[in-house]
Design a binder for these strands. Structure first.
Lengths: 338, 338
DNA sequence: TCTATTGGTTGGAGCGCTCTAATGCTGTAG
DNA sequence: CTACAGCATTAGAGCGCTCCAACCAATAGA
């Protein structure tokens, strides 16, 4: 298992180690015949360069550190996917750690990543305090995804949750709705943004905002609908802006169980455009976050810094887009129900 | 940004570099006072060891290479999650590449991973030919997840798709069904296994297998149900073993659109236990694959090899389990429908 | 003919660390 | 008082590579 080194290849090809190094790095200042000899020798020995030795000697790195707060979460998995795509295209490799949504574990993960002296560090949805981010940013370019902070030296990629909610409201208003309720996702910066977007959107249309507390689950969506139904049918809004897709699906099933039809009796709109929303059985109108794109941008931000193409902080606020399916329609005079 | 080295710490603490090295590796043969001095100096300088230099000098590695055929896929994301958990617990880091389900790209990804001289390599759902796997296995311990091959020197972790289907059939038979149709997932080793399990299961119960071609999507599930309905209502089976959860959901919605009720008129069972299946609106009876566990086992297999605890190949065949929800029930005399 | 110039090639130092063998320093036995 | 452990500590070589400066033709310009 003792793998061949550059020295071995050099000996076999009858050249110096430095020449092999040049060939391996694709230098143009090598004669064709020597190059072929080296390549042949490398092939015969099954040689491939030692990335860590290279990194040490060249004082450069071709790895990007990625700290994912929760890889289990499909959102982050897709961001990583996008990140990986740009990284691979530029010859970079990803080294990944997860933090399990615990600040202590995230700290350790970041330390571990930094010990590899990566060219850059991406933090996806980190929960660590700003000070930790700042100290990392002092050592290496850092990009934050799904998390904002006031540090001048870190890049950021976020989706505009406020705009997303507003898009949802605009869509419903344009369909003719004016009694629209928002199911709030609870604690967390995303929920707050989405709520704000909803409230502002409603006000902009001269409508009264109506926010009810819920959570990012289908069970919570169903529960809050039951509460809404207790208000009485006449009090029921004509449209719902749910906290996310799961929440929306829960709400829909509760509505249908109560004998209401979506979108005939009430429109529902989700958030995230998860694979769930696209199912024909569900066919949920929802707000799409460009997750893959977010990963791509994060990767590019890092690589720009690495290449020294940019020194000022990048602040990407991605515009979500509406995906209209079949859970929204114009309001009708509600049928009489028992 | 010039980070401090061991030399800097040594100078500051008034000791030799070798002593700092011992402290950093937690050696017991260092006096308490020197240790404290070193630790203090390291703290003051913000020093942390250089993992790559360490790896080079010690000729050991603390990274595991992971090639994911498709990180976008929730299945693999969860496997990676499990892998990461064991790796982190043992002080290993993950370096990840994706192959995008292309043999050529996977080959490149593996080469890139091997250039880091990882302690082990995990290939998740690779599509590369066996020869590529073999050559990697010649350099480093390799574990295969969701892919089997005949190589003696590689570890494997697979779920028993055959057993999974059989469990599904057993469940339906125990409910009293005897006309059970399988929706086949098409090409791919998993489909073949699931189909075989279904066929064998049916035969074991003295029943006639009925396999119809479909795909791993909800659209395909709906389509195949339409075809089934054309056979005529009397020909319709009393239960369906779908290719996977998406396929099952598509089938269910087509059935409901045709005026049939699930599970009253027909039972449906999925495969994978995706987050979708757990939604109360869907509440799909399905076969669960222990994805996280598979990642855990893969990581452990690798680490056992790395530590030299085992030299013979590990062959983990994980037993899937049934998750009974509300899309299966005993067959009833079918209501007369128009 | 003698320098420049150019393009290909090489020796050797050094990246930040580990590891072996040797060193100095006690303390205790001979 | 010397000898010998036994322990903490250190010098120095070396991991596999890159990079710089030096080198050596071979050609071009004067």
């Amino acid at each position: 298992m003792a793998r061949p080194t550059m020295e071995d290849v050099a000996r076999r090809a009858g050249v110096s180690r430095a020449l092999v190094s040049l060939v391996m790095r694709g230098s143009p200042k090598v004669s064709a015949q020597r190059r072929d000899a080296v390549l042949a020798a490398a092939e015969e020995l099954g040689y491939s360069p030692h990335a860590m030795a290279r990194s040490l000697a060249s004082r450069t790195s071709t790895v990007l550190g990625v700290m994912v707060s929760d890889l289990h979460n499909a959102f982050f998995a897709e961001v990583v996917d996008g990140l990986e795509a740009v990284a691979a295209a530029e010859g970079f490799d990803l080294i990944i750690n997860t933090g399990g949504r615990s600040a202590a574990r995230e700290r350790r993960a970041v330390t571990s990543l930094l010990s590899f002296r990566p060219a850059g560090l991406a933090l996806l949805g980190p929960v660590v305090p700003t000070s930790t981010i700042a100290s990392a940013a002092g050592q290496v370019p850092v990009v934050l995804v799904a998390r904002s902070c006031r540090l001048a030296e870190v890049d950021m990629v976020n989706d505009d949750g406020e705009a997303g909610s507003r898009i949802a409201v605009d869509h419903l208003v344009s369909l003719g709705h004016n009694r629209i309720t928002h199911l709030d996702g609870g604690a967390g910066s995303q929920s707050a943004l989405r709520r704000r977007g909803y409230v502002d959107g409603m006000r902009a249309h001269g409508l009264n905002p109506d926010v009810v507390a819920s959570e990012y689950t289908d069970v919570a969506g169903a529960k809050v609908v039951s509460q809404l139904l207790e208000r009485g049918l006449d009090e029921l809004p004509t449209a719902l802006v749910a906290a996310n897709d799961f929440n929306a699906v829960g709400a829909i099933s509760a509505l249908e169980e109560a004998g209401l039809r979506v979108p005939d009796d009430i429109s529902v709109i989700g958030y995230d455009n998860t694979s769930l929303a696209g199912l024909r059985h569900v066919s949920l109108t929802t707000v799409d976050q460009p997750r893959h794109e977010m990963g791509r941008l994060a990767g590019e931000a890092l690589l720009q810094r690495v290449r020294g193409e940019r020194t000022d902080a990048a602040r990407h606020l991605l515009h979500p887009s509406l995906v209209v399916r079949t859970t929204t329609a114009g309001p009708r005079t509600r049928r009489k129900l028992t």
